[in-house]
């Protein structure tokens, strides 16, 4: 927790998550084969939003005021969602809506103090009615599988950390980022998913 809350960690994490999602969206948009089998969902915008993924995620981070852990958990949710909904890959037409919804659901599940859907709708630049539809679809898309064990949380932190170091060794090598360190004080529990999280294919391209 302390690691995630230190001032230089979250901006770097936000920046990295943005570039990761950008690469995923680019890859899926280029993949014509996949486009043929893609479903159009409530997350799919008619046009590609003009705001960049990074600016959008920074905006969410600035206004959501949720626990830093929520961004890791939102990332876990996006991964679960794409695995459960293979016909809805992340692309530039749906990534923004998926992002605002995943962070909102993570905050609602994780935090005792959080903003309501109307507030997140304003932050995300959509209507409250649309936000509510997105939330319900996202929850059913996840099969309401919202709990994240410490093992899973730590695995995703470690994965993000190694990806960050691989991607920008000069920028990140000095930051001694250990996202999972904050969990050392917490008890670890077995759960069905904790044994299988290594097998999960994660969002990184």
């Amino acid at each position: 927790m302390a690691e995630l809350e230190s001032p230089n960690v979250m901006p770097k994490l936000i920046s990295f998550l943005s570039s990761l999602l950008k690469r995923v969206a680019e890859s899926n948009d280029l993949n014509q084969q996949q486009l043929l089998h893609q479903k159009v969902s409530v997350f799919h915008g008619l046009t590609r939003p003009t705001i960049s993924i990074q600016s959008y995620l920074e905006r969410i981070f600035k206004y959501a005021n949720c626990s830093p852990s929520c961004f890791i958990v939102a990332y876990v949710y996006l991964d679960r969602f794409t695995q459960r909904q293979p016909s809805l890959p992340i692309n530039f037409f749906n990534v923004h809506r998926l992002l605002i919804t995943s962070v909102m659901v993570a905050a609602k599940f994780m935090d005792d103090l959080y903003y309501n859907n109307a507030y997140y709708a304003k932050v995300g630049g959509i209507t409250t009615i649309e936000m509510n539809f997105l939330e319900v679809d996202f929850l059913f898309g996840l099969g309401f599988h919202l709990n994240v064990t410490p093992g899973t949380f730590q695995a995703y932190c470690a994965h993000l950390q190694s990806e960050m170091l691989l991607m920008q060794p000069l920028n990140f090598a000095d930051s001694s980022l250990s996202l999972g360190k904050s969990l050392k004080a917490h008890l670890c529990y077995n759960e069905d998913e904790s044994s299988s999280h290594q097998k999960q294919q994660q969002l990184a391209v």
Binding site: K108, N116, N117, N132
Partner: peptide, 20 residues
């Protein structure tokens, strides 16, 4: 609550926790 809250957090937690 269509206007403000969306899925109540109590419902969201109850369903996801009971799934487990």
């Amino acid at each position: 609550h269509e206007d403000e809250e969306g899925v109540p957090p109590t419902t969201l937690r109850e369903v996801s926790i009971l799934r487990m």
